[in-house]
Amino acid sequence: MPTRNHRPAGAFALLAAVAGALVAAVLGLLTFGAQATVAPESLPLAVAAPPGPLQAAAKGIASQGGDQVSWRVTSPEEGRKLLEDKEVYGVLELPVKVVVSGAVNPSGTQIAHQVLTGAAQALGRTPEVETLHPVGAAGRVVPLALSALAWVGCLAAGAALILAGRRIGREAGIFARFTQIVSAGVLVTGVLAGFLKLWDSSLPLGWDVLAFLFLISAAFAALQTGLLRLLGIRAMVILGPLYLVAPTVAGQVPELLNPAYRAVLWSWTPFRFSAEGLRSLLQGVPGAPDVATGVWVLAGLLAAGPLLAMWPGRSALQKTEADTPDRVVQVGVH
Rank of each mutant, 00 (worst) to 15 (best):
residue 1 M to A: 14
residue 5 N to V: 13
residue 6 H to G: 15
residue 10 G to L: 12
residue 12 F to Y: 06
residue 16 A to K: 12
residue 22 L to C: 02
residue 24 A to I: 15
residue 25 A to L: 10
residue 25 A to H: 04
residue 30 L to F: 10
residue 32 F to Y: 10
residue 33 G to K: 03
residue 34 A to T: 12
residue 37 T to D: 05
residue 37 T to S: 05
residue 39 A to V: 04
residue 42 S to Y: 01
residue 46 A to F: 01
residue 55 Q to F: 01
residue 64 Q to R: 12
residue 67 D to N: 14
residue 67 D to K: 15
residue 69 V to S: 08
residue 69 V to I: 15
residue 70 S to L: 10
residue 73 V to C: 11
residue 73 V to R: 03
residue 81 K to T: 13
residue 82 L to Y: 07
residue 85 D to I: 13
residue 87 E to F: 12
residue 88 V to N: 15
residue 88 V to T: 15
residue 89 Y to P: 09
residue 92 L to D: 04
residue 92 L to V: 04
residue 94 L to E: 02
residue 97 K to H: 07
residue 98 V to C: 03
residue 101 S to T: 13
residue 103 A to W: 03
residue 106 P to T: 05
residue 108 G to T: 08
residue 109 T to P: 01
residue 111 I to D: 10
residue 114 Q to N: 11
residue 115 V to A: 08
residue 115 V to R: 08
residue 118 G to M: 15
residue 119 A to M: 09
residue 119 A to K: 06
residue 120 A to I: 02
residue 121 Q to M: 13
residue 122 A to F: 01
residue 125 R to G: 05
residue 127 P to W: 00
residue 133 H to D: 15
residue 138 A to N: 00
residue 138 A to G: 06
residue 143 P to R: 06
residue 144 L to F: 06
residue 145 A to M: 12
residue 146 L to P: 04
residue 147 S to Q: 02
residue 151 W to M: 15
residue 153 G to E: 14
residue 153 G to Y: 12
residue 155 L to S: 11
residue 159 A to D: 05
residue 162 I to C: 07
residue 162 I to A: 06
residue 163 L to C: 10
residue 165 G to N: 05
residue 166 R to L: 11
residue 169 G to E: 05
residue 169 G to M: 01
residue 172 A to N: 04
residue 175 F to W: 09
residue 177 R to Q: 14
residue 178 F to Y: 07
residue 183 S to C: 09
residue 183 S to R: 09
residue 184 A to G: 08
residue 184 A to T: 03
residue 185 G to F: 00
residue 187 L to Y: 11
residue 188 V to H: 10
residue 189 T to I: 01
residue 190 G to V: 08
residue 191 V to T: 05
residue 191 V to N: 00
residue 193 A to G: 11
residue 194 G to M: 07
residue 195 F to P: 09
residue 196 L to G: 09
residue 197 K to A: 15
residue 203 L to Q: 01
residue 205 L to K: 02
residue 209 V to Y: 02
residue 211 A to K: 00
residue 212 F to G: 13
residue 216 I to N: 01
residue 219 A to G: 11
residue 222 A to L: 15
residue 222 A to N: 13
residue 223 L to D: 04
residue 230 L to G: 04
residue 230 L to I: 01
residue 231 L to V: 09
residue 232 G to L: 02
residue 234 R to W: 14
residue 237 V to R: 01
residue 239 L to A: 09
residue 240 G to W: 02
residue 242 L to W: 01
residue 246 A to W: 00
residue 246 A to K: 03
residue 246 A to D: 08
residue 247 P to M: 09
residue 254 P to M: 02
residue 255 E to K: 04
residue 257 L to T: 05
residue 258 N to L: 11
residue 273 F to W: 07
residue 276 E to Y: 08
residue 278 L to A: 05
residue 278 L to E: 04
residue 281 L to Q: 04
residue 282 L to W: 01
residue 284 G to T: 03
residue 285 V to G: 06
residue 290 D to Y: 03
residue 293 T to V: 12
residue 294 G to M: 00
residue 296 W to H: 07
residue 305 G to M: 07
residue 306 P to Q: 05
residue 307 L to D: 02
residue 310 M to E: 07
residue 310 M to A: 15
residue 312 P to T: 10
residue 313 G to Y: 09
residue 315 S to A: 13
residue 319 K to G: 14
residue 319 K to H: 14
residue 321 E to N: 08
residue 321 E to S: 07
residue 322 A to Q: 07
residue 327 R to D: 09
residue 328 V to A: 05
residue 328 V to P: 08
